[in-house]
Simulated assay, not measured.
Amino acid sequence: MKVLIVEDSIFVQKLVRKLIMDHITDCEIQIASNGEQGYNLYQAFKPDLIITDLLMPGLNGQEMLRMIREIDWDVHIIILSADIQKATREEVESLGISGFLNKPLTVDKANTLVELIRVTNHAE
């Protein structure tokens, strides 16, 4: 499984990467620090799953998601964000996401994230 993590916080990048590596076997992971890097890596890496923040400098996660959905409705996307505005959540859900988790990442949310990744991995 190929996973792209798009997150501007190095701490969260490392946390999510470790979580995936500890619980999901046979994963290849790439990391981007903003939406522009994420979109470019998406095109080059062709991930099965994208885990992205929404609130990032430059091209944010929501804009990146819209750009990806213009060309690809098959890639699975999980949002991990502190943006809890109802309108934002409704918009990204309308773009066919696989899950939405609010930061901070607690133990329960980490378990939910691992479960969402497993479900996504088996959907391939």
Rank of each mutant, 00 (worst) to 15 (best):
V3W: 02
V3L: 06
I5M: 02
V6T: 01
V6N: 00
V6Y: 01
S9F: 12
K14I: 06
L15Q: 11
L15C: 05
V16K: 03
T25S: 15
T25Q: 14
D26N: 15
D26T: 08
D26S: 13
E28F: 06
Q30K: 14
Q30E: 15
I31D: 02
I31W: 06
A32F: 11
G38S: 10
G38M: 06
G38V: 09
N40Q: 15
D48Q: 06
L49I: 07
L49V: 07
I50R: 01
I51K: 01
T52I: 10
D53F: 06
D53E: 09
L54N: 09
L55D: 12
L55F: 08
M56F: 10
N60C: 08
G61S: 00
G61C: 01
Q62M: 15
R69W: 00
W73K: 14
D74W: 10
V75G: 09
H76E: 14
I77T: 10
L80G: 00
I84L: 07
Q85C: 08
A87K: 14
A87M: 09
R89N: 07
R89Y: 10
E91M: 05
V92A: 03
V92W: 03
E93I: 12
S94P: 07
S94H: 10
S94F: 04
S98Y: 08
G99I: 05
G99H: 05
N102S: 14
K103P: 02
L105A: 08
L105N: 09
L105C: 09
V107L: 15
V107F: 14
K109D: 08
T112W: 06
T112F: 07
L113G: 01
L116S: 08
R118A: 13
V119F: 11
V119K: 15
T120I: 04
T120D: 08
N121F: 14
H122R: 14
